[in-house]
Design a protein around this nucleic acid. Structure first.
Lengths: 218, 218
DNA sequence: TTTAATTTTTAGACTAACCTAATTTATTTC
DNA sequence: GAAATAAATTAGGTTAGTCTAAAAATTAAA
């Protein structure tokens, strides 16, 4: 049985090695920074995870998940997103509140609970942030989404998900009256810093490039 | 913020000091045995809980919960029983399966979650085992229940709860087709060992005194 | 009321997960 | 390709929660 901490390392590795297409390895510093621990701490854990054959790793080398490690990580992501869906749909949590609680709930150990919850929610495919929920076999529906920053000037699109899941970002998104399925029209873009003028709900607003890179559209 | 372990000690103390009417103190060995740890381990934790003013305790003396400690313990019991109700009513868990998972879920920290869950379940007063669920203020509906072993021979009664919550006991209860609201008629009793012959669902069965002491009736 | 038995605490160790400081290895850069 | 920089590891220490073995305090018994 994996500890909370071990599970968090696996989840972090899955995240870091899926950020960009064809990125399959992470570094110790990168991992440590992501988890908010010191590199020395991460090194200790890497030894343990290697021992348990959950990662592929040699001293001073890059880190990647093993088949088994990836499977475990996907199970945790599955639980996280199912719980987010539950909190949002059944308990009326808001968009930006679900993540924090799901961070705790994802570590509950009970295969039966996950399956029953999945069924109770009607086998959802996406969580409240638009992220794909891995199914019981660990399969993830890939949705090759574009970011708002890639949308052509003058075109219209629909928001389907967010990339960043921090509370600060989600609150900002909510403040702008943006949400899943909101229509967005790109009015103009500044070459200088990539900031964009967009039209949502008949209101014109300006967002930074950084912001636009974290809104996924279709 | 209390750790899982600290919470479990408080919950154990609440249990040990509520077993019998007017029992308000517990001993170190008793506590350690209940939690499955060694007395020396319990002593360490008792120092910490005293430091945090969650218990009343002096070296070599008896242990009792402080006002604050009792409040915390009741919050955990509240969460435990709400989760049990959720698992049983919404996710179709069986009677004997809910406890183990609720033992994990009770440690999730989120006041909002507890209140929303309570609302979602329709503010239930009793959990699937018939135990009273403390309300948001920590108030518990006292139900002065008799045990099956106290029922007069020849009389009929109705099962309303169980005292023992171990999986083994609950499975046994289920096997006998006994559950909340099942009618029971006491047919006879052996003076020798207190074992009873009872009628449930038109079937006559024999149960031990120990068994009968753990079935609560009305 | 002194001894015996029981209960509880102390002392010293262990593991997991973290830290800082120092060292080693790898990667850049000139 | 040698020196400088960056990345990663080792060494040694901390805290929470556990243990065993030994000592101390309390309670029960003779």
């Amino acid at each position: 049985m994996l500890s909370f901490t071990e599970e968090n390392y696996l989840k972090a590795l899955l995240h870091l090695t899926s950020e960009v297409e064809d990125k399959v390895e992470a570094g110790t510093n990168e991992l440590a920074f992501y988890l908010g621990v010191k590199p020395a701490t991460a090194t200790d854990m890497l030894k343990k995870l290697k021992e348990k054959e959950l990662i592929d790793y040699v001293k001073y080398g890059k880190i990647s998940l093993s088949g088994e490690g990836r499977k475990k990580a996907l199970e945790i992501v599955r639980k996280h997103r199912l719980w987010e869906t539950f909190l949002y749909e059944k308990l009326d949590f808001t968009w930006d509140e679900v993540h924090e609680v799901a961070e705790q709930l994802e570590h509950i150990h009970s295969p039966k609970l996950v399956d029953k919850l999945d069924k109770f929610l009607g086998f959802p495919e996406f969580d409240p942030h638009g992220d794909s929920i891995p199914n019981a076999k660990g399969e993830v529906k890939q949705s090759f989404k574009k970011t708002l920053s890639e949308a052509e000037t003058g075109t219209s699109c629909k928001m389907v998900a967010v990339k960043d899941n921090t509370a600060a970002f989600l609150r900002y998104v909510s403040q702008l009256n943006l949400g899943i399925d909101t229509s967005i029209k790109v009015l103009s873009r500044q070459d200088f810093d990539g900031s964009m003028e967009i039209l949502i709900n008949n209101a014109t607003i300006v967002v930074s490039q950084k912001f636009a890179e974290n809104i996924l559209i279709v």
